[in-house]
Amino acid sequence: MLAGYLKNIWHGVSTTAKGMKLTWRHFFTKPTTIQYPDPGEETYFSPYERSLHEFEPEKCIVCFLCAKACPVDCIRIEDDPTKKSKAGKFLTVYEIDYAKCLFCSLCVDPCPVDCIHMGTQHDLAAFQRDDGGVKIDFMNGEGYWRTAETSAHPESGLKPHLERHGLNKEEDE
């Protein structure tokens, strides 16, 4: 019985020591952490990364195929039937509600003119929900901006954009 008792103690001590040896070894290996990139730093993205969309409004023919393909119906498209643009119909609103978007990329494949892609910008932080962090709006005509500008930068976002281009009178839901 004493032999079993001592064997137990020895087993406990020896397995503990082996575990400690392993963590000691790890103490001297290089950590595998990749630190969060500071603003401006490069970071690795997969070539097929599915983050914020990149949208080229000048190509859009307002066919609504992406809106139909979306499982959560988060794409809102509006056009002005009285006007015409180079590509065809005149796009006035292209809005993706990122509170709903699944980032599934089902909107990318059906596009016949290849104007919507999933990009690499992932930083959706903003101080208010309506302040450009959730919805992206695009206005054709006088000016537009790419979704890559949507970030927590105080100059980006919907309201500043509307002010910049004097389009404050347009209200969207």
Binding site: S46, P47, Y48, E49, R50, F103, C104, S105, L106, M118
Partner: peptide, 14 residues
């Protein structure tokens, strides 16, 4: 990262 490289997502792939 492997699965991210092939599908674009790290946890939810589609």
């Amino acid at each position: 990262d492997l699965l991210d490289h092939i599908s674009g997502g790290r946890l939810l792939y589609h």
